[in-house]
């Protein structure tokens, strides 16, 4: 990916492996109602709890791994400030139907600053906004994972430019909005509906029937909401995307991540001028 400058957070091969394994665990944590062999869990209360704890641990490991590769002051300040924007934007959209303001910034920042940064930004944005609004809870790990994926995938999109880039990002934003809603719903579906209800999770059903029940649940609870999120994200990318991308690229250029600094020691011994400083000849101007 030739961006003309280095990514804000470099992702080493080891980090890629870590993220891949974490993503596998994350997929299971979200998708267990479809994937888990019947009879694995005694109660539908167990898996969300177990996976909630597991996801926190896995996220901690991924973040520690990325940080060990080096997040310098520039990247950390950028992370902090962009998370602040997201955290400040989130309450603005949270109240009105499905307007989700976090995604578009996440997509654009991931795009410009690279997948490692996108992943980290997804985590810190959700965490900061949860702390700010008192929204820390078991759902946090799921939200962090969802956003981290979106940010990371945005950084991995093909290197298009111009209108094609905006179209791609808008589509990706909309798809991401749906996917996020789909996954997040999935995380609380098993225990949020009365088990007797016909759209509830029922352990042991074949995949197709289970999926059918879930899609109905998803449609009944949050389809409108997710559509709102997808539409606002796509619209925001189309309208604010070009100048915002330009702003990000300008910032990346100015920040000069991992700068090439070089030193040339002075030739010969210490100069007398440094040893004994004399002001230059000062001529006293007459009036």
């Amino acid at each position: 990916m030739n961006r003309g400058f280095l990514a804000a957070i470099s992702v080493r091969r080891r980090s890629v492996l870590t993220i891949a394994m974490a993503s596998f665990i994350g997929l299971i944590a979200f998708g267990w109602p479809f994937a888990v062999a019947p009879g694995t869990f005694s109660s539908t209360q167990t898996p969300p709890l177990m996976f909630g704890v597991l996801l926190i641990l896995v996220l901690a490991v991924v973040f520690a791994e990325i940080a060990d590769g080096g997040i310098d002051a520039k990247a950390i300040a950028m992370l902090g400030v962009l998370s602040a924007i997201n955290a400040a934007l989130r309450p603005l959209g949270g109240g009105t139907a499905g307007v989700e303001t976090v995604f578009f910034l996440l997509v654009l920042a991931g795009r410009v600053f690279g997948p490692g940064f996108g992943f980290a930004l997804g985590c810190t944005s959700v965490f900061a906004s949860a702390l700010l609004t008192g929204g820390v809870g078991p759902w946090l790990a799921y939200q962090m994972f969802g956003c981290a994926w979106i940010g990371m995938l945005a950084g991995l999109l093909p290197p298009l430019r111009g209108k094609a880039e905006i179209a791609m990002l808008a589509l990706f934003g909309a798809a991401g909005g749906y996917l996020f809603g789909f996954l997040l719903n999935l995380s609380f579906w098993p225990f949020s509906v009365d088990p007797a209800s016909s759209i509830a999770y029922q352990p042991g059903l074949p995949l197709a029937a289970q999926l059918h029940r879930y899609l109905l649940f998803d449609a009944a609870t949050s389809l409108g909401w997710d559509t709102g999120r997808a539409v606002t994200t796509a619209l925001a990318v189309v309208i604010i995307g070009p100048p915002a991308l330009a702003a990000f690229r300008r910032a990346a250029r100015r920040a000069n991540f991992q700068p090439a600094a070089s030193f040339q020691p002075p030739p010969g011994p210490r100069s007398p001028a440094a040893a004994e400083v004399r002001p230059r000849e000062v001529t006293t101007p007459g009036l």
């Binding site: 992370l79 602040a84 810190t124 900061a128």
Partner: peptide, 11 residues
Amino acid sequence: VAVTVALSVAP
């Protein structure tokens, strides 16, 4: 650190 920064910059 990133979250601390976010918390102080957001307002």
